[in-house]
Design a protein around this nucleic acid. Structure first.
Lengths: 146, 146
DNA sequence: GTAATACCTAAACCTGACTTTAGGTCAAGG
DNA sequence: CCTTGACCTAAAGTCAGGTTTAGGTATTAC
């Protein structure tokens, strides 16, 4: 069992955030001894899941719903699974979009590299979009793909 | 040249957002005819870059800085390149983190699949962390890697 | 002529996710 | 004893990134 300060330390979060999560209902079964929160393995695992679901773009109120399902027992396995499946799909599409944005960034890095060498964008603008060198063509096309 | 409504349509954004971006200085050279905004190729390209940089986790005020550099001419190529390089690195690390979170989601999907079949988490809990089947072991380890 | 559209502005409002503030309890150390 | 540190609460404040509102102009459609 850990105090709020220890958990804050472990996860690199301010204690105020943990209190806030608790208030939002993210630790349904959290115990206390004389008013003081006691974080156990359940809560540490919950926190790992919270970090994951937040990175997956989920809102606090939906994470709370998941935590409530966990507290309800086996009857909610299907809902829990469906939530993870939905998040997985969402996240895969987010990662795909980010990779496209990343290709745009790569292209811009190459572009400014050239522009610095040339001293202007003139030569470069003549290359876009059909006369790009092989080395960068694919990145450019991926970045601009619909 | 396009009106705000046409651009909104093209990018699937509300016109209010485009006005907001303009107010935040994201279209430094935007022209107007009798008060009405006229979006040209420069602004469309700016908007593509804005969407990219937003996806890369950049704040509006930093995007404005970039747009101002663009308006200043070739002397700012190095700053612009540095900004993109920094964003590229940031984004690569974000994508890596998201892939770890995704592996957590994949693991949870598998976990609940099993739990539903078993009717409880008991057998499952005995498998974690050292007796997981090959099919899911790597995903689990990646998800929990420091 | 007047009504519907599409544009404009400034300013107020909203949301999510925290963070800060102000005030209080309690145990240990000097 | 009394101060320091770690905990507690409720409530107010903050911030980014928009969105909505209220009121106005200009063009086109009937």
């Amino acid at each position: 069992m850990y105090t709020i300060g220890q958990v804050a330390e472990m996860f690199g979060l301010p204690a105020s955030t943990l209190r806030y999560y608790d208030k939002q209902g993210l630790f349904p079964g959290l115990e206390r001894t004389s008013g003081i929160r006691r974080f156990g393995d359940t809560e540490l695992e919950a926190l790992r899941v919270i970090e994951c679901l937040k990175k997956a773009g989920m809102e606090i109120k939906d994470i709370r719903l998941f935590m409530e399902w966990c507290a309800e027992g086996p009857s909610t396995y299907p809902q829990r699974k469906a939530m993870f499946e939905e998040r997985k799909a969402h996240m895969e599409s987010e990662i795909a979009k980010m990779n496209r944005a990343l290709d745009m960034l790569k292209f811009k890095c190459w572009y400014y590299e050239q522009a610095i060498q040339d001293g202007s964008e003139d030569r470069l603008e003549a290359l876009i979009p059909d006369n790009l060198p092989e080395e960068i063509k694919e990145v450019y096309e991926n970045a601009h793909a619909r």
